[in-house]
Design a protein around this nucleic acid. Structure first.
Length: 194
DNA sequence: TGCCCGATTAACT
DNA sequence: GTTAATCGGGCAA
């Protein structure tokens, strides 16, 4: 399955997070040539109480307030990194959290970084995929259409499922988590068809 | 300043 | 099912 790969442009991200998030399912994400197919994401809008940007700009979330098509990387629970793609117009402070990949390229490197050879455990979670792809604070604020990032649109049609987001305490009912139906690489299954 | 909690994970019982 | 690891933001005082 090596279909022609079309790169994602900055314009791809200059749309509502609710359009961008499902469109990212099936896309390919590589960091320094290591990565795979995006199978799970969550949308965070600045009007959303669960979003980091909801209470205004801080040093930590500054990238969310910048232009679309950039990375927002933050430290979670003091020990993990989480990767987001900034969306919509500059200042809209909306982003998509990348939650899981199907590992495809650079399996050896990912296994070394993660300390496991179990493919299913390499990238199935926001903290796990950042460890596998070596994403850190150093990637915060970098453009997504340039090295070390490489993003490609999905090569074939996919079936997408939606459901409530994970690990939040506010606006828990909003179904803004999107996944590739039936994928074994989701961080957690969806109620309907995951 | 001090305290609590969080877009998590792995290793427990 | 529970809990430790570990740190910046937000809010009360």
């Amino acid at each position: 399955m090596h279909a022609a790969r079309e790169k994602l442009t900055q314009a791809f991200f200059d749309r509502s997070v609710h359009e961008v998030a499902p469109d990212l399912i099936g896309a390919t994400l590589l960091v320094r040539g290591v990565g795979g197919v995006i199978v799970e994401v969550e949308a965070y809008h600045h009007t959303d109480p669960a979003a980091h940007s909801h209470r205004g700009r801080t040093d930590r979330n500054a990238a969310m307030f910048g232009p679309p098509g950039y990375a927002y990387v933050y430290r979670s629970y003091g020990l993990h990194w989480c990767l987001n793609f900034v969306c919509e117009g500059e200042g809209s402070a909306s982003a998509v959290l990348i939650r899981a990949l199907q590992p495809v390229t650079g399996l050896a490197a990912m296994g070394r970084r993660r300390g496991t050879s179990v493919e299913r455990l390499l990238c199935s979670g926001p903290g796990r995929l950042c460890q596998a792809l070596a994403v850190t604070q150093a990637h915060n604020g970098l453009r997504l259409d340039r090295a070390p990032f490489a993003l490609y649109v999905r090569a074939e049609a996919v079936e997408i499922v939606a459901g409530p987001r994970i690990g939040i305490s506010k606006a828990v009912e909003r179904p803004w988590r999107y996944g590739l139906a039936g994928s074994p690489f989701l961080s957690r299954p969806f109620k309907n068809g995951g």
